[in-house]
Design a protein around this nucleic acid. Structure first.
Lengths: 224, 224, 224, 224
DNA sequence: CATGAATGAGTATTCATTCAT
DNA sequence: TATGAATGAATACTCATTCAT
């Protein structure tokens, strides 16, 4: 009825946000253009005013997520003046923050809810996250607190296992379980990075925040 | 035109094989019943002579893969008279063999090419693979060659990272890269399981076979 | 498995019976050839050994019902030596018996569960039932117990209303309701035929039988 | 090709009209969505722009017919200030008008061209038409021109027989036959309602209109 | 007489996309 | 910028019928 005209930027943004939410909820394939415009309360035609096609929209979203991810990661990676532990923690924070922005990307390593996203992301993420993490590991080796001959592979394997185990944790809300998991993660990390026990004690500090983060991830199926 | 009548078992098998191949190539959603029957050169109706629906077909495939997986894993898990290293190796062999049977399941930890498969498989695999692996780790601890306080979590994290890194290796055919990866894997495993360096030397023996396996995985995009 | 070879007549009969039952349960359109052969436990091909097509089967069934109906009616109509009341009663009995044979035909006036049956039957039934009833009315007029200028139309209207109201009664099993209905029917009939009150007292005798008949009609949805 | 955009109301109406016509011609089951859109000269998708499913369309049609029927009947039933004869006549007019709107409903008592329609309608019609007619009969009894102990049953039986005999008349166009039929109907009605001969003389006035009505009903089988 | 594998035309439904207003 | 009616290709599934064995 009421024809509300927004600025093009805002509208586009609104489309992007709505689509991301719906992609998260249903996956790309199972999200229809109708669902998007209905949730926004606008007409179908408007969608094609802003995007060439549904895939165009996807591309834009993926590009965005990649850029955001890269920025987040690079901002941490660049701080070479910080200690490797500090940078590691900030990297985890960055990843954690990314999660809030988008599930699609966060679960980059696992959630292949839709192949198309996956492909684009995988290569991109591997090009920024892994090198950044690798660099931190190398820094740690130089600092003498880490010890491994395979910094790159360790980065990959570690990111992979934490991402997956984190995935498993998503359903859990019992703080006890989470704390046990974090303690394990510290142990596991120290072994993998070749660090002395206790080196990565910041994990436990990180735990509480993680609990909250995980908490916020849950309310996923609460839509109408 | 030419009316070729096969035995129902063969035909059903043919459907299953064809469908699995196509699901691998395009995912469940993007594989149409038409694609399946066309590739087989039979009429559409025949599909519904053998399966109640497309989803029925999927269920059968998933069930099969799960059963095969379970059988492979359980056959290894049961051999408690063997040393933990021997069983570990046999478990890897079993997993490797599963890969040949089906990508869908192999990538159980990652490929969520289709959610429906993923869900069914994840729980099933977690119920058989992880406990089996956990048990082996516990056996290793008793034997005094492993040392970790978190056998279960280690099992999960380890399977997850190897599965994923293996996933990354799929594209690679350079034996050098593969050997480097396997050397890393040995190192990583020894750290994670709390084993002395050299304990898991069987990895390198395993490498050659893995190279062949990975080789066979490649011809994937040879379709239309 | 066991290949049971029956005489062609028996088999055909079995098909006819099974089909009639299923047509009653689901209607012609919603009864598939598969349903018929499955219920009989024979192969699909056998159906086409006995019938040219599904419609061929229907034609045969309809023809049969019509012949049976005619025979039943004519056997009553022919007994011109009996009193009109006696013949009327026998006609009702005949109709009632027909009901047991087949719902499709019984409800000839109403149940147009399938058009094709309806058409064939309507003309046929009108050609035998109505004239037979008309003749009885005329006999009643001659006997001096009925009085109407429109024997044929009265026959049609009467058969129509009783058939329909009977249709409504099907669901009812309360004897009280049924008896009230029968009392009304007597009253209604006497008026319509121009008979003195009490003339058609045989209705009430007929009631108990009707109750049983109706009782047997009910278990219709008790299938698997 | 030519993209003609109509107002949604008109389009929906057009769908409804076209569908009703086709349902009348072929029955619900044998009317395909393709037939509807082809007759309208629009694309298939448009159908689903206006209706959730074919059954949704049916529901809407049935609801409409029921509402129209009810309204027609209730408008007559409410006029309690009029004489019972006047109301009876108006009720017949209302029924007659309904016929023009829809065969499906008109033949409410008989046409079970499709069970789904039948069920919904039967109960609805029974809930409005029968009570309305019953009430008129009771009014007639009070006025002293009718006499029966079973107003409700008489209403049912009468409506049933007239509806059916009317159904039979459909094919007839010979005014002589029709007039004879109407004369019979008057006689029959007077008997059934317990009225004195001549009471329902309005029937004959009604006849001419009925002839026209029946005339319009005929062109039915002019399809493929 | 009997089997059941195989056929293929038909049917409802979905959904990205276009376009006149 | 905004609307939503209109398009049409694609897709899963049904079922009467055929035919080699």
């Amino acid at each position: 009825m009421a024809r509300i005209t927004k600025s093009p930027e805002d509208r586009k943004e609104e489309f992007l946000e709505t689509a991301m939410t719906l992609f998260d909820e249903n996956g790309y394939e199972h999200t229809t253009v109708d669902m998007i415009v209905n949730r926004m309360g606008v007409a179908k035609g408007l969608f094609y005013h802003y995007f060439k096609s549904k895939e165009d929209l996807l591309d834009i979203i993926v590009d965005r997520l990649i850029v955001q991810t890269k920025e987040g990661i690079d901002s941490v990676a660049g701080k070479k003046e910080l200690s490797c532990l500090r940078r590691m923690r900030e990297l985890f924070d960055a990843i954690s923050r990314m999660r809030r922005n988008s599930y699609a990307l966060i679960d980059f390593f696992h959630e292949e809810r839709n192949r198309q996203i996956h492909h684009a992301i995988e290569s991109q993420v591997m090009k920024s996250l892994v090198p950044a993490f690798e660099e931190i590991i190398r820094a740690g080796i130089k600092e003498g607190i880490f010890d491994t001959k395979y910094p790159r592979e360790t980065a990959i394997a570690f990111l992979s296992s934490t991402s997956y185990t984190g995935h498993l944790m998503k359903g859990k809300s019992d703080p006890k379980e989470i704390r046990r998991y974090m303690r394990f993660l510290q142990d596991y990390s120290e072994k993998v990075f070749g660090a002395k026990p206790g080196t990565l004690s910041f994990y436990m500090e990180y735990t509480e925040e993680a609990i909250k983060t995980i908490d916020k991830m849950k309310p996923k199926n609460g839509g109408s």
